[in-house]
Design a binder for these strands. Structure first.
Length: 431
RNA sequence: GCUGAGGUAGCCUAGUCCGGCAAGGCGCCAGCCUUGAAAGCUGGUGGCGGCGACGCCGCGGGAGUUCAAAUCUCCCCCUCAGCGCCA
């Protein structure tokens, strides 16, 4: 949620910024939000005037009573107030609610360094690393390789849970855990505190950390409970200090979330036919930071550098794109994607999403900065970035490290986590 | 799931029975005092609206009764403790 003060005092700036997102719906929303806010303030004035008169008369009645004077006349006027106040107050409350809802639906203001563009085809490459291999169409797809090596059961998973689910088996499970541990160790070394968060959140907190459309398209709802399965540990990590005042001397707070993530993926691209690239559940190590506002651009680069380091150490070629104005999500002010090279597909595909949410998420969560005993008004910034999503990283590894004989070489940096194992090949016996 | 106790400002607490401007402490800020500091003393310390004087709101949430609700009535939510169940 953006600061309502900006809407009132610098509407031209806000409008100009919203225009960059290239979605006319936002401009409509902006006008409506402004108008409703003005109506609300006018109505609030009316209600306050009535309340003021009521309070005056109430006090007069109390005073008169205590002095034994008659209250009949004052009471006659006082009795007329509740009816009109009731009507005005109801209108005021409903205008307030409408104005709030409109304000909450407005996206974050974009950072000036976000490139102007209409959709993901106009994202700007800002870095590349490694040598993408050209001409490797003879490779197996990651799902074919998983099945050939006896490392996954897709058909059986689809039968019992539906499309978008999988069984992983054997050494690839250890490889998955190795990836998580490798990423986590790297982050701990860099000052992050590992956190295993709740995998479910209540609706209230959840509405504060993401936009409403996600409830329709992304999150799984638990039947009979006010609980949603998390789509990413970013969400419970952001909600960790909901309604609290953060000691500004302790910022930045660096957290490394470790969780399974659940996504319905309704609409959009849906789930992939087979494999683990786009699925309903996956493990992820997530970076999350609460920061002072002035530090967030620097920390955004730090998150990006950490994510790049993960893929550099895995020796997977990648590039980084600065996501353009038409493609940045609602909550982020700026976003980088890291895209790994998939040699069989001959394409870069998204493996990391790294966002600076500025004060948008924290304001919704009613988080402020300050010192003990001295709450401030400043809203801290929140940032998040994938360190490694194992589904995507495994898919990249399965293509990148595939050998001509059909075996899979284990990335060097993961070998210590697998007892020094260097290769995964097809099992000789039945499994 | 059952029973009980709770939810009041950044934090801790009183007020609730019996309706009448939310009291006190801690912390924090400022001033006085002091060579400096501490202590002490004085004042301030939430949200919203208003250019402002100022006003309104705020006691978990909502509805009701009333001129007037932290306080009375009804509904709901949450937390903690004990018990039950459980990897």
């Amino acid at each position: 949620m953006i600061d309502v003060d900006l809407l009132r005092k610098e509407p031209a700036k806000v409008k100009e910024n919203l225009e960059r997102r290239r979605n006319p719906a936002y401009l409509e929303l902006f006008e409506k939000a402004r108008a409703r806010d003005a109506e609300w303030r006018a109505c609030l004035g009316e209600a306050d005037a009535l309340r003021k008169r009521r309070n005056e008369l109430s006090r007069q009645i109390a005073d008169a009573r205590s002095q034994g004077r008659s209250v009949a006349e004052i009471e006659a006027e006082a009795k007329r107030i509740p009816d009109s106040l009731h009507e005005v107050a109801a209108r005021e409350a409903s205008l307030k609610q409408e104005a709030d809802l409109l304000l909450r639906r407005l996206p974050n203001l974009l950072d000036v360094t976000v490139p102007y563009g209409k959709d993901d085809t106009e994202n700007v490459v800002v870095a590349t690393w490694g040598e993408p291999e050209k001409g490797a169409p003879q490779l197996k797809s990651h799902s074919e390789l998983l099945e050939a090596l006896g490392l996954a059961e897709f058909d059986r998973a689809h039968r019992v849970s539906g499309a978008g689910f999988y069984y992983l088996k054997g050494p690839v499970v250890l490889l998955d855990l190795a990836l998580q541990r490798f990423a986590l160790d790297l982050l701990v070394e860099r000052g992050f505190t590992p956190v295993e968060p709740p995998f479910m959140l209540r609706r209230g907190p959840y509405e504060d950390v993401t936009d409403l459309a996600d409830f329709e398209n992304v999150m799984y709802k638990i039947d009979q409970e006010d609980l949603y399965l998390i789509a990413t540990s970013e969400h419970p990590l952001a909600a960790l200090y909901r309604g609290e005042i953060l000691d500004e001397d302790r910022l930045p707070i660096r957290l490394a979330g470790v969780s399974m993530n659940f996504r319905r993926e309704i609409g959009g691209h849906g789930v992939d036919q087979k494999g683990i690239f786009r699925v309903h559940q996956f493990s992820k190590v997530e970076q999350f930071i609460f920061s002072r506002p002035e530090e967030s651009p620097r920390l955004h680069e730090e998150l990006r550098a950490n994510a790049e380091e993960v893929f550099r150490r895995l020796e997977i070629p990648y590039r980084v794109v600065n996501v353009c104005t038409g493609d940045v999500g609602t909550v982020a002010a700026k976003k980088y994607d890291v895209e790994a090279w998939f040699p069989r597909q001959q394409a870069y595909r998204e493996v990391v999403s790294c966002s600076n949410c500025t004060d948008y998420q924290a304001r919704r969560l009613r988080i402020r900065m300050g010192k003990a005993g001295k709450p401030g008004k400043v809203v801290p910034h929140t940032l998040n970035s994938t360190a490694v999503a194992t589904s995507r990283a495994l898919a990249a590894i399965l293509e990148q490290y595939q050998q001509p004989d059909g075996s899979l070489t284990v990335p060097k940096v993961l070998r210590p986590y697998l007892g020094g194992r260097t290769t995964i090949s097809a099992p000789s016996g039945p499994n």
